Simulated assay, not measured.
Amino acid sequence: MDTKRFIVYGAGAVGGSLGGLLHRAGHEVVLIARGAHLAAIRSDGLRLVTGGGTETLSIAAVSSPAELDSAPGDVLLLAMKSMNTEAALRDLAAVVDPATPIVCVQNGVANERAALRLFPNVYGVCVMFPSTHLEPGVVEPRAWPVPAILDIGRYPAELDETAESIAAALRSAGCHSEPRADIMRWKYHKLLMNLGNAIDATVQPGDGIAELVELACAEGAKVLAAAGIPVTSFDEYRARRGDILSTDRASRSGSSSWQSLVRGTGTIETDYLNGEIVLLSRLHGVPTPVNEHIRQLANTFAREGRPPASLPAAELLAAIH
Rank of each mutant, 00 (worst) to 15 (best):
T3A: 13
R5A: 04
G10E: 00
G10L: 02
G10T: 09
G12W: 02
G12A: 14
L18G: 00
G19K: 00
H23I: 04
H27E: 15
I32G: 04
R34W: 11
H37P: 08
A40V: 11
I41S: 02
R42E: 14
R42D: 05
R42S: 03
G45K: 08
R47A: 10
L48K: 00
V49N: 11
G53D: 05
T54F: 13
E55N: 00
T56M: 02
T56I: 13
A61Y: 06
V62Y: 14
P65H: 00
P65I: 08
E67W: 03
G73M: 04
A79M: 11
M80D: 11
N84P: 04
T85S: 02
A87L: 07
R90W: 02
D91R: 01
L92H: 02
L92K: 01
V95L: 11
V96F: 02
T100K: 06
V103P: 12
N107C: 08
R113L: 12
A115S: 15
A115Q: 09
L116D: 05
R117Q: 15
N121H: 12
C126K: 10
C126M: 15
M128R: 01
L134H: 03
E135V: 15
P141Y: 00
W144A: 14
W144S: 15
D151F: 07
G153D: 04
P156I: 07
P156L: 10
A157R: 08
A157S: 09
L159A: 11
D160A: 12
T162Y: 07
A167C: 12
A169I: 09
C175H: 09
H176D: 11
E178W: 09
E178F: 13
R180P: 05
D182C: 05
W186S: 01
K187W: 13
H189A: 00
L192G: 01
M193D: 11
N194S: 15
G196D: 11
G196E: 08
A198G: 15
I199M: 07
G208N: 09
I209S: 05
I209W: 13
E211W: 02
E214P: 10
A216I: 04
A216E: 01
A216F: 00
A218I: 00
E219S: 08
E219D: 09
G220T: 06
A221L: 13
K222L: 10
A225G: 10
A226E: 01
A226C: 08
I229P: 03
T232S: 14
F234Y: 11
R238K: 07
R238H: 14
I244T: 15
S246H: 04
T247F: 08
D248S: 12
R249K: 12
S251H: 11
S255W: 10
S257C: 15
S260C: 09
S260P: 04
L261M: 14
E269L: 09
T270P: 13
T270W: 03
N274G: 14
G275M: 06
I277R: 07
I277W: 11
L280G: 03
S281F: 06
R282A: 10
R282G: 15
R282M: 14
P289W: 10
P289Y: 09
E292F: 08
T300S: 07
A302N: 10
E304S: 12
G305F: 06
P307V: 04
P307L: 13
P308A: 06
A309N: 02
A309T: 04
P312E: 06
A313K: 08
E315I: 07
L316T: 13
A319C: 10
